[in-house]
Design a protein around this nucleic acid. Structure first.
Lengths: 210, 210
DNA sequence: TGTACATCAGTGAACGCGCGTTCACTGATGTAC
DNA sequence: TGTACATCAGTGAACGCGCGTTCACTGATGTAC
């Protein structure tokens, strides 16, 4: 039975956001079309009124996940000093999959190695998400260390993002909760050490503009 | 036609090592039993004379990959100073998937997020591999900074491993070779910065035992 | 505004396919005497 | 050492299943007059 245009648009969004959560928590290949559609309260056939293929849904679901994650970082750190903002972003990122209601999950750390084997369309979304995440961090790093060049800020930010994504991925593999916590707190310490010379939040050595 | 026991043992090893390479480069779910068996010069049915299931093969293939990787690190850094050894290990790890003949690939960075969704048996192998990798790095860090406690060395090593695994995973997602190289060299710089205060190889600040 | 018709969101059964796995079979290897 | 037999590594067709996708269909929505 046909639905109104706004109903249809709502359905489409519901499919994408439902799929996004399922893909992040269970993996791209492990989640089937029937799983997604029934979780969205629909039957399988309806999917193809909205999307061309599962591949396209994966691309949109990941883009959506990046959008939500980055927007959340922006709002959560609004009006914070760059040092505080960086620490908050790192904390939020590292703990993304620790609690129960994990509404903001990053594709890079949750399904990163699967993305590496996807079609160019999907990989482009992932590569773009990575760039946006690095830029978000680099902006704060730039503010923190005003004497730093643009390149130095991007280099530092890239290192921070590698550490964060790696740590969350490893924490998801770790058997027990304690091992996961340990990986994450070690990564947090490493990132603080990385940011310290810029003038950061760490206890250790500080170096500011002149 | 039955083969001798040594032939059979050889066959078993060939299946594991063939599977290991294929799993690392294409992903665990993307590689089918027929692919593996035909790459090993066999037909599908023979598989079950050696293994109980694909799951068991995944576990063994990953254990083998860790064994080879860690043994390679040991031999490649034998008789090096701890600082040189660390730098060599980091270089080798970061460039594992850059060349053509990638014979030493780490499951954590190649199929890490897929491992997170596997059965406990497989996750245990991955978690153990992670611990061994951290220990290998921590040993060198300990040698480098003799005044460092055991815990501090492990913490630093854990940070280094998070950064390495994240960087290689991200480099595998990156569209072009240049972006990949950039991610890897930024990660290398971050790790040097992390190791510098221990008394490491970086140009920046050095701090040794009194 | 009311009516007639085209559109199309959503249904749910069905399609083809490739997956992991099983199985009857072959014949060289290993074993018992 | 030679012979008879059991074992089992490897074959390749087949099984059942779940996947992504297609399709005829339904009926409310949108459109034309």
């Amino acid at each position: 039975m046909r639905r109104s245009r706004s109903d249809a648009a709502e359905t489409r969004e519901r499919i994408v956001s439902t799929a996004s959560k399922m893909f992040m928590t269970k993996g791209l290949e492990a989640v089937g079309m029937r799983d997604i559609m029934s979780a969205a309260g629909l039957t399988p056939g309806g999917f193809y009124r909205h999307f061309e293929s599962k591949e396209q849904l994966i691309a949109e679901a990941n883009r959506g996940a990046f959008d939500r994650l980055l927007a959340m970082f922006e709002t959560q750190t609004r009006a914070m000093s760059p040092g505080e903002a960086l620490d908050k972003i790192v904390s939020l990122y590292l703990n993304q999959s620790q609690g129960e209601g994990n509404t903001f999950l990053c594709p890079l750390s949750m399904v990163g190695t699967e993305l590496g084997h996807c079609e160019p369309q999907v990989r482009a979304v992932a590569a773009d998400g990575y760039q946006r995440l690095v830029q978000l961090v680099a902006d704060r790093v730039s503010e923190l260390g005003r004497d730093l060049g643009r390149d130095a800020a991007l280099t530092t930010a890239s290192g921070v993002v590698s550490t964060m994504t790696g740590a969350v991925m490893l924490a998801n593999i770790a058997g027990d909760k304690a091992a996961a916590k340990s990986i994450l707190s070690n990564a947090h310490a490493a990132i603080k050490a990385l940011l310290a010379p810029v003038g950061g939040v760490a206890k250790a050595g500080r170096r500011t503009k002149s």
